[in-house]
């Protein structure tokens, strides 16, 4: 069976330049021959040290960065066979840093209706009516715990957690098959974390949304993911069913992570 989304043998290097002639100061191998397959309805958790390449992998899957080696496949066909609009319906990403992903000049309403409109064009061949888009934007906002009042706000008028939720709503607006969520709830307080995690589980159950969740918080990945991948220095060092990895971690990093979780959360 071919997988929905596959990363095959992906390598990515970044070069750091400096000085007068922009000489190369060094190269970082952010990803070193990483292979990953997501089947429809999968929910995979990606954990690993800061700098281990998680966001880089996410951006490659979303089509925002191109790999230096290896390829990305959708239903067995290379990413290059699809248009940008098609890919937007395949994979959407929630960014680790929400404010840099929200255009400061647009209101929340515009941010959401743009994404909704793209979805209507893709699924129905034409854009949604103003009324439909407005209603849908309101529904999306309330699903992430924000009142429709925020439709009129600009990003700078929102608190950190409110921005993060607008970013989540916008990613969901496109109704992607795969959602890559990079630290989706780390900026949110616990009661809203719970609401977002429950929402993602509902979408997974109802629409068999495929999830790749990046988090440094084992409680979050343990809650959402069936399968866990642990990365270190650009490569996966441990992989398996979430329960197995959490109950009997094999890699040192996974063990250290688990041991460091404060007792009253475990």
């Amino acid at each position: 069976m071919t997988s929905l989304l596959e990363a095959e043998d992906i390598t990515k290097d970044f070069h750091i330049e400096g000085g007068l002639f922009r000489r190369r100061r060094g190269t970082v191998r952010a990803l070193d021959r990483v292979t990953l397959a997501l089947n429809a309805g999968d929910s995979v958790g990606l954990v690993g040290e800061s700098g281990s390449g998680k966001t880089t992998l996410a951006k490659i899957l979303t089509g925002l960065l191109s790999p230096d080696g290896g390829r990305v496949l959708w239903e067995g066909r290379p990413a290059a066979d699809y248009s940008r609009a098609q890919w937007a319906g395949h994979v959407q990403m929630i960014f680790q840093d929400p404010s840099s992903s929200l255009n400061p000049k647009l209101t929340v309403r515009t941010l959401l209706t743009e994404a909704l409109d793209v979805k209507h064009r893709r699924t129905e061949g034409r854009g949604g009516s103003t009324g439909t888009l407005r209603d849908e934007a309101g529904v999306l906002l309330s699903s992430v715990g924000l009142s429709p009042e925020f439709l009129r706000s600009y990003p700078h008028q929102l608190s950190g957690g409110q921005k993060q939720r607008v970013a989540i709503a916008r990613a969901l607006a496109a109704e992607p098959r795969v959602l890559v969520a990079d630290e989706p709830v780390s900026a949110l307080d616990l009661s809203i974390q719970a609401q977002i995690l429950n929402l993602l589980l509902d979408l997974k159950d109802r629409y068999s949304l495929t999830l790749l969740v990046i988090s440094h918080d084992l409680a979050v990945v343990g809650y959402l993911a069936d399968r866990l991948i642990v990365m270190k220095e650009g490569r996966p060092v441990e992989e398996g069913p979430a329960g197995t990895v959490l109950d009997s971690p094999r890699h040192d990093y996974t063990r250290t992570l688990l041991a460091a979780v404060p007792g009253f959360i475990r």
Partner: peptide
């Protein structure tokens, strides 16, 4: 309520407990 909604590491299979409702506008 805030303390109860803390996600624990082991999944319980059920939904996380939440504070009902939203903070006010």
């Amino acid at each position: 309520g805030l303390i109860q909604s803390l996600p624990r590491i082991r999944r319980t299979g059920s939904r996380l407990p939440m504070l009902p409702g939203q903070p006010p506008e």
